[in-house]
């Protein structure tokens, strides 16, 4: 007979090894970028314009450009996404059309990001004549972000017990009053998590801004929403593939800055989640 304890220990060890295999590449990527990029990070790198064919100076316009694009994405995607989720979770009846709508949202989440880029080029840049600009890029990123925000927010709203809506109605609340004063506050942590995850993706993607917003080399801050901008992911792509003789220090430094922005947004999401979870009482 096989020793049961031995089998159990074997199982645990196996699972531990598998977990390690999952975590190792991530740790390696982060570690590699930190080690090789940290030397590039200094005040000038973060706050100065690029100089000498981007081989010297800083990446300030790319950092600002990425923050601008994320901000623009947030302004468009949050109200539309949360509004859409409230409609789907609280108001929409189960009809043929709402099913089509849901299907569309699910499929939208699976569309490759370069397709969003081409769509943005066609609609915003060319047809609406926004040109290659912060505006066109933000709108493109917002469309890419919407399905993530809508589906996580809808999920969060549905997780709020139905009884609360019933109680609110029985106390003379309209449906909207119940949603605003009870359902929405309860769903907020989930909604915020979805928003941050969506914006994270917007911050890191290159393809959607490739044709819609990004400038190869533009050593200044955009003066209006209708100007193109540098952005971290695209800048990273450019200095890694398009500029011969680029010092790797700068490449890794740029990657480190992008990674830091993305990971700190992730951390904020985690903190918000755990803060609300501890406060929740029902």
């Amino acid at each position: 007979m096989i020793n049961r304890h031995l089998v159990q220990r074997l199982g645990f060890t196996l699972l531990g090894v598998i977990s390690l295999i999952v975590v190792l590449p991530i740790l390696f990527v982060i570690g590699n970028i930190v080690v090789r990029g940290i030397g590039a990070i200094n005040w000038e790198f973060l706050t100065a314009m690029p100089r000498g064919g981007m081989k010297a100076g800083g990446i300030f316009p790319a950092i600002v450009g990425t923050l601008l694009l994320v901000l623009g994405t947030a302004v468009v995607a949050i109200p539309v996404g949360v509004g859409g989720a409230i409609y789907l979770a609280e108001y929409a009846r189960d009809t043929f059309w709402t099913r089509i709508l849901r299907l569309a949202i699910i499929n939208l989440a699976g569309v490759p990001s370069v397709v969003y880029g081409l769509f943005g080029l066609g609609l915003f840049v060319l047809f609406l004549q926004f040109g290659t600009s912060v505006l066109a890029g933000s709108l493109t990123l917002a469309i890419m972000t919407l399905p993530v925000i809508i589906s996580t927010a809808e999920e969060a709203l549905r997780a709020v017990p139905g009884e609360f809506r019933l109680v609110s109605a029985s106390l003379g609340g309209t449906r909207w009053q119940g949603i605003r004063s009870i359902v929405l506050p309860q769903a907020l942590p989930g909604i915020i998590t979805g928003i941050i995850l969506g914006l994270l993706r917007a911050a890191g993607e290159t393809a959607p801004i490739l044709f819609t917003a990004a400038a190869f080399y533009l050593p200044r801050i955009p003066r209006s929403l209708l100007e193109p901008t540098m952005a971290l992911p695209y800048h990273l792509y450019v200095i890694s593939t398009q500029v011969p003789g680029m010092p790797p220090r700068i490449q890794y430094g740029t990657a480190l800055v992008l990674l830091t922005i993305v990971l700190s947004m992730n951390a904020v999401a985690a903190i918000i989640r755990s803060y609300f979870r501890r406060r929740r009482e029902w």
Binding site: S168, S170, L171
Partner: peptide, 27 residues
């Protein structure tokens, strides 16, 4: 909503809303 204010209802299970005693009563 006005009808529901005139006709109050208590459910089978105690269903306090999230929040304090005061917030529940004054909702």
């Amino acid at each position: 909503p006005r009808l529901r204010r005139r006709v109050g209802m208590v459910f089978a299970l105690p269903l306090p809303l999230p929040g304090t005693v005061r917030e529940n009563i004054l909702y």
